[in-house]
């Protein structure tokens, strides 16, 4: 998986950590079914363009997660009825996976935070 901020755009953008894309996708799908373009857009918008997913790299991740059974896909007509898209939705296994990854992520952030910004009381 190659996820990277585009170097020729904003210097504020940061590279996505290995493995976090899966979590972001699962989290995005928590709001309801979405197709690939919507997911990409959603990630870009909610991170206020800081995290830029190269759109292409989204699809291998989607297919991989689907194979693991965390999401399911189906061709459905869009809400405006214009055409069909491949919609992805969370499966129960996907929900469990999301909460697992979320707690992992929290522990990781906390651990890194303790190193980077130690609270004075804890300093030995």
């Amino acid at each position: 998986m190659s996820t990277s901020a585009m170097p020729d755009q904003s210097p504020d953008r940061i590279e996505l950590l290995q493995g976090t894309l899966d979590m972001l996708i699962l989290r995005t799908l928590l709001f309801g079914p979405a197709h690939g373009h919507q997911i990409a857009k959603q990630i870009r918008q909610t991170t206020e363009d800081v995290l830029q997913v190269e759109h292409g790299s989204l699809y291998p991740a989607l297919h991989r997660i689907q194979r693991k059974g965390w999401i399911a896909a189906r061709w459905e007509t869009a809400k405006d009825g214009s055409r069909q898209f491949k919609y992805y939705r969370l499966t129960p296994a996907g929900r469990r996976r999301l909460s697992f990854e979320e707690s992992n992520w929290k522990r990781l952030v906390q651990a890194i935070g303790r190193v980077m910004w130690p609270t004075p009381g804890e300093e030995s």
Partner: peptide
């Protein structure tokens, strides 16, 4: 440009299929 190489993506997806 935002998408990247379609062929490469397709290849990576196939890889994801195993």
């Amino acid at each position: 440009r935002a998408f990247g190489s379609t062929a490469l993506v397709a290849e990576q997806v196939r890889e994801a299929w195993g």
